[in-house]
């Protein structure tokens, strides 16, 4: 191992705008019963989740998600060109709680990201109809196999200035 270390995060909280939160939840509901996935990009080092980028789950599965490899490269080149990084990496669980699975932990490879887990398990009835149940939305750091849950702070929608 080299001497370079990942920065420590003394303040463990994900701050996210209401609109972005809503967009992630809507994506998870739309793709249910398959897992939905995506990122929220932001300026490198800023920890600001600003640009919502829903991705296609190339696995098209209720128990697995994976970004398509070509789309993954396009996403990272785009973020690179904008001096961004993935501030949030999100995906949904559609039958289990919003907690990282063993696979999630093993494959987590963005030490700077907030890993957001959404669960839609209570949102749909047996027939697949919307049951208006609660969506679970939780955030974690996953570094070297260690999961640390953090608070989620939702900021209200931007007020439009009226003169």
């Amino acid at each position: 191992m080299g001497s370079h270390r990942f920065p420590a995060y003394p303040c463990r909280v994900l701050t996210i705008a209401q609109e972005t939160y809503d967009a992630i939840v809507a994506h998870a509901k739309r793709d249910h019963p398959d897992e939905a996935c995506g990122v929220v990009a932001g300026p490198e080092g800023s920890d600001r989740a600003e640009r919502f980028v829903p991705m296609v789950n190339a696995a098209g599965s209720p128990t697995f998600y994976e970004f398509d490899s070509t789309e993954l490269l396009a996403l990272y080149k785009d973020m690179d060109a904008r001096d961004e990084e993935p501030v949030v990496v999100y995906h949904s669980h559609t039958a289990t709680e919003a907690y990282p699975s063993r696979t999630d932990i093993g494959l987590a490879s963005e030490p700077n990201a907030h890993y957001v887990l959404i669960s839609t398990r209570h949102c749909f009835d047996e027939a697949g109809g919307n049951s208006d149940g609660p969506v679970e939305f939780r955030s974690y750091r996953i570094i070297d196999g260690v999961v640390t849950e953090e608070d989620v702070a939702i900021t209200p929608p931007q007020q439009t200035q009226t003169v």
Binding site: S69, S109, E110
Partner: peptide, 30 residues
């Protein structure tokens, strides 16, 4: 050069001077 090496020979894929190689871990989970 933007081609996933799995489609161009994997570890045997050939390289020439000036090529660009990008390594990206999959974003995946269960």
């Amino acid at each position: 050069n933007d081609e996933d090496v799995r489609f161009i020979g994997g570890l045997e894929a050939t390289l020439t001077d000036g090529d660009q190689v990008v390594v990206l871990p999959a974003v995946a989970g269960g």
